[in-house]
Write a protein that binds this DNA or RNA. Structure first.
Lengths: 253, 253
DNA sequence: CGTTCTTTTGATGATGCTCAACTGGGGTGG
DNA sequence: CCACCCCAGTTGAGCATCATCAAAAGAACG
């Protein structure tokens, strides 16, 4: 629990700096909040960012009802966010990766509306929202980009609504894979080969399907030679066909 | 089509003012963008609001791909927004009513991501977004409340994801009715008796169900004496039970 | 190497979809 | 005014998709 962080202690002289979040040094600054900011303004943003915080696998970043103080920029790793209904069942509302912002749903009521949990050992930058709001008055570019990020979250959720309301199982799953691929591509990773950070169960939950359905779909895609699958390692062998399935324009079924 | 607005012409001296959108005079200002603004700041917001625009039933406010210039505050009436997939099928992503803001999804790419269509004769206030952004620098309260509204849209969509991903048909429909009721209540209308502004088909589309399912659910609720239904007129006879069904905590099935 | 958790695969079944026919209200024109 | 049509909605019958239940196989971990 509260063990004395052995690794960090050993390297204190170096890590004191490394622990200070620095946007300009961060590989995600082209995607994240500081996108498009001048060097000087990035410094001002750096100045308000609290600390870099490690969240271990399955660690909770925040829970429903927690008071809202910070937004979180993911520096490293993956998260899931989920709603909980009255019966305690969860519905995963998103998987987030480095460069994405967590906590925007909490602004409306000053309380978090979902749980955020790390899918693997991760790191986030704490952004105190009141201080960010002060900065908005001085850096219009920052404000504008923040609005873009919130807006992006809205459109992302709308496509999930399309997925859940309109698509059949196969199409949902293909859309899910294609979406992951494009996000890895935007981060400079291979869009065809990647590790799933989430379990089959989590995928199913997100897509409104059961774990068994996901498993069957994986087997089917494997048999059709659209995918190579090895546990959580995915290789998309025919991305074009997967895209067509996701779009619903696929002919050969 | 372009008939000379007989009614308004007769009253021109009065209606010249009425046509200028005025937040302080608008019955929605406690819910809408100007919420919590001082009299003076409300005037500044008034000053940038373009015009009050009438949108007839089935009229299009904007379409996917339209360049983004304005947000729209609904002054009167109801709208639906929907995504369109590659096969031309639509997925309704929301029903909006007076006091709600349309177009926030367009900020991210400067293009609208959905179509917005009036469900009945309606009126909106055009809010030029660049000018609104200028105002943000001068009225922090306005900025903060704008963030709350965007955030609210995010949480709204998350609950729809919960609905579509996790609930059975009966629960979805009950949740839909309960949601409508609470929004009418917030506007000072009866939360138990109201007109549906949308067709059965539109409800089904929104909830990821077919028109037949909606019809059957209505009949069932009617038979169980939870609802009185007359075409589009709804009376909730047992709101508590409907809430319980929506929450999934209902015992007697 | 046994224990536990995750995933796969199979068999069965229910929910909600599809297709089809029918009803009823509102508008139009004879 | 009535006949007719048209559209939205209702109701019924059969069926497909995906969920549920069950069991076995495979990975992970001490």
């Amino acid at each position: 629990m509260s063990q004395p962080l052995p690794f960090q202690d050993k390297h204190q002289p170096i890590n004191v700096n490394a622990l200070r979040a620095s946007c300009s040094a961060c590989s995600m600054h082209q995607l994240c909040l500081p996108m498009g900011l001048a060097e000087e303004d990035m410094g001002r943003l750096d100045a308000i960012i609290g600390r870099r915080r490690k969240v271990p696998r399955d660690g909770v970043l925040y829970r429903v009802g927690d008071p809202f103080t910070n937004l979180y920029a993911i520096r490293l790793g993956h998260f899931k966010t989920y709603q909980i209904n009255y019966n305690g069942e969860q519905q995963i509302t998103g998987f987030q990766m480095a460069g994405e912002l967590l906590g925007m749903d909490a602004i409306s009521t000053d309380r978090h509306h979902c749980d955020a949990v790390a899918l693997e050992d991760s790191e986030v930058c704490e952004i105190p929202f009141p201080r960010l709001e002060e900065l908005f008055g001085h850096i219009p570019t920052l404000l504008h980009h923040f609005h873009r990020m919130m807006s992006q979250e809205i459109t992302r959720e709308q496509s999930v609504m399309l997925l859940l309301g309109n698509m059949r199982a196969e199409q949902r799953f293909a859309a899910f894979l294609v979406n992951l691929a494009s996000r890895y591509a935007a981060r400079g990773y291979s869009p065809t080969t990647f590790q799933l950070r989430m379990s089959r169960e989590e995928i199913g939950n997100y897509l409104g399907l059961t774990i068994e359905s996901i498993s069957r779909l994986l087997s089917r895609f494997k048999k059709q030679e659209l995918l190579r699958v090895n546990n959580r390692e995915i290789e998309m062998l025919k991305p074009e066909i997967l895209k067509a399935i996701a779009a619903g324009t696929d002919q050969c079924k």
